[in-house]
Amino acid sequence: MNFRWEWEVFLRDTGGGRTYLEWLMSAWGWTLSVAACAWVVALVFGSVIGTIRTTPSPWLVRIGNAWVELFRNIPLLVQLFLWYHVIPAMIPVMKDLPSFVLVVLALGFFTSARVAEQVRAGIQSLSQGQRNAGLAMGLTLPQTYFHVLLPMAFRIVVPPLTSEAMNIIKNSSVAFAVSVAELTMFAMQAQEETSRGIEVYLAVTSLYMITAMTINRIMAFVEVRVRVPGMIGGGH
């Protein structure tokens, strides 16, 4: 076996007026933007669904549970194909949406089920007394949620949300299946065009790891800043 590194491959022209390095960087940008936009979708829907699962209304709880079961029990890639092939066929307005938006929706909704689980667990970890105290003070149920329960719950769920944020970076790799030019798509195409798979894959893999590590650091910073004094690990 005689293998020689050929890192120069990244300086080669892709035939489209840019080098593979430039393409790699733009692919990294796509990965970051898919993950970031999906994260926003996941946080918004996950928070709402997670919260309504802890309300006293059985109907809201049922809707929340159904949401979580639906998005947890279908593989992400199949969900992506649903958004890409099935939903536009049923809702014609969605026909003109670019793949990017569909991937963001698919990944965001998929992750929202996981976020909802964490938010629900966070709210339920608070003592029942907090809710009762809020209601006894004369706050309405929504007020109790906004001023008493949610501010605590959201600070408690930061650590589990960190791992979800890192997962969303990894999961954004399924976007290759609908031809969004993100890192995995770049890896597959550049490997095919240059036959320097090892160099290409190493570069892509390192970028994924760097991204995950950066998110981990950012979330650790957030965690310290929002720590609840007096709670476990919260200092004093």
Partner: peptide
């Protein structure tokens, strides 16, 4: 820390 899709591609290559 690596996406599963990349691991699949790595093994298929290696």
């Amino acid at each position: 820390s690596i996406p599963l899709v990349m691991v699949i591609l790595w093994f298929f290559l290696l």
